[in-house]
């Protein structure tokens, strides 16, 4: 079912391939929680992070180490071959010679695809500028499957839907599962028209609103994202907008019993800390699920028999 050499974008995943990754992640979850494994013994994963990352970098590292493999790090770009002007193409050719797979985060769009053209080993895209971040989407799908349901799902994507690469990929992937998607954002941060048109062309029900209160009682999943202050030149305008997309336990009073709240993190103030203790909060589980999902991808790409 899984014949990929690289993981670059969600668009390259079929529904069946997504299912196979999620099933594999479920079978590996005990190892993500600490059960001993030597599945990746003798294998080395190289982490090439040209931009700061906490969760993605550390969860890849955890995934590889918990499966008994080793990790090498590019380290800060300063003082490395990058600062001497080495091309990305050369960097991945060299480091591809040291490792069994490369994880790359880079500020330029298309960088992971370029890396895949030069790397002798599989490349996993951990974020290419405003482009793609497929492992985030896969862990989001895994969270929805585990904590809610992927079939007949009603989901609201909330916040910055214009620049947020996470929600673009997630919306696309959800369209493969026939989800009912509500887009909730301020007018200036609406999801771009070509992405909406693409979703509609796949038969996905998409509706748009600025009013979070209008949808909160009718969805299974509330997927929150951060509205970045720098998107608004006027701080007063930012405060006004941001306060409309902030959730509290009181705000969720009429919500469905099984409503789950997700967030790719880090959050700033779009989810009040008092929500953490409610049965709706799932963002920390979501963050943890990055480990089994990344384990699954590593096993499927470079595990024995892959």
């Amino acid at each position: 079912m899984f014949k990929k050499r690289h993981v670059l974008t969600m668009r390259e995943f079929s529904r069946e391939e997504i299912d196979s990754v999620l099933d594999m992640a479920a079978s590996l979850e005990p190892y993500a929680r600490g059960r001993k494994s030597d599945m990746m013994a003798g294998k080395i994963l190289a982490l090439l992070f040209f931009e700061p990352s906490t969760r993605t970098r550390m969860s890849f590292e955890t995934a590889m180490k918990r499966l008994g493999g080793g990790v090498i790090n590019l380290g800060p770009a300063e003082g490395s071959s990058i600062s001497k002007g080495e091309s990305l193409a050369d960097t991945v050719r060299v480091i591809g010679g040291y490792a069994d797979a490369l994880v790359i985060r880079h500020p330029k769009e298309g960088s992971a695809r370029l890396a895949s053209q030069f790397s002798p080993v599989p490349v996993l895209n951990a974020g290419d500028g405003a482009g793609h971040h497929p492992t985030q989407t896969l862990l989001d799908l895994y969270t929805i499957k585990k904590e809610s349901h992927l079939e007949n799902l009603s989901i609201a994507l909330v916040g910055d839907l214009k620049y947020g690469r996470t929600v673009h990929s997630l919306a696309y992937a959800l369209s493969l599962f026939g989800a009912d998607i509500t887009l909730v954002s301020p007018a200036s941060l609406r999801m771009p028209d070509p992405i909406k048109a693409d979703l509609s062309s796949k038969g996905t029900r998409v509706r748009e609103t600025c009013d979070l209160g209008e949808v909160i009682n009718n969805v299974d999943v509330l997927y929150m994202t951060r509205i970045q202050r720098e998107r608004f030149p006027d701080p007063v305008e930012y405060n006004k907008v941001a306060s409309c997309y902030r959730i509290t336990p009181e705000f969720m009073t009429g919500a469905r019993e099984g409503l789950i709240v997700m967030h790719p993190l880090p959050r700033v103030d779009e989810i009040a800390p008092s929500v953490d203790g409610t049965p709706h909060a799932r963002y920390f589980q979501q963050s943890f699920y990055g480990v089994p999902v990344r384990m699954a991808l590593l096993k499927m790409l470079i595990g024995r028999g892959a």
Binding site: S87, L88, A89, P107, K108, E109, G110, L114, Q117, G129
Partner: peptide, 14 residues
């Protein structure tokens, strides 16, 4: 490519 932040608009050998 018209995207100034595209990797193809850098000095990479592509």
């Amino acid at each position: 490519c018209q995207n100034p932040n595209c990797i193809s608009n850098t000095l990479e050998p592509i």
